[in-house]
């Protein structure tokens, strides 16, 4: 087991963060650290805007970073579970990204 980093871009809505944290607890995964900020600089996320055909407004979306210590198989499962949260726009680990439900084999975030 090694420590891994997950990055999420999600809607900045009331209760959204609680869904992510709740999911970790509910499925028995542990959070080593968590950091969340509203996104102010959209430059690194232009590809998401292009992909979804939208423009983000300031304060609308947040970026979350979670560190967790798990094996490979569980990491894949966590990623897939997070992808299912309705308010998550994109989530990635070192190797893959789910962007609006579609899997890409690289870390785009």
């Amino acid at each position: 087991m090694i420590q891994r980093k997950l990055t999420l871009v999600m809607e900045n809505k009331p209760g959204a963060l609680a869904r992510v944290v709740g999911l970790f607890h509910q499925r028995g995964y542990n959070i080593d650290s968590l950091h969340v900020d509203p996104i102010e600089d959209f430059e690194p996320f232009r590809f998401i805007e292009d992909e979804l055909g939208i423009k983000f407004q300031v304060g609308e979306v947040s970026r979350l970073t979670i560190r967790t210590t798990v094996g490979d198989k569980l990491m894949r499962q966590i990623l897939r579970q997070i992808n299912k949260l309705i308010e998550v726009i994109a989530v990635s680990d070192d190797e893959s990204t789910y962007l609006k439900g579609v899997l890409r084999n690289e870390n785009l975030l």
């Binding site: 999600m10 809607e11 979804l52 939208i54 309705i86 308010e87 726009i89 609006k100 439900g101 579609v102």
Partner: peptide, 8 residues
């Protein structure tokens, strides 16, 4: 139209 939701 839920921009973050896209079931396969």
């Amino acid at each position: 139209n839920i921009r973050s939701y896209n079931p396969p």
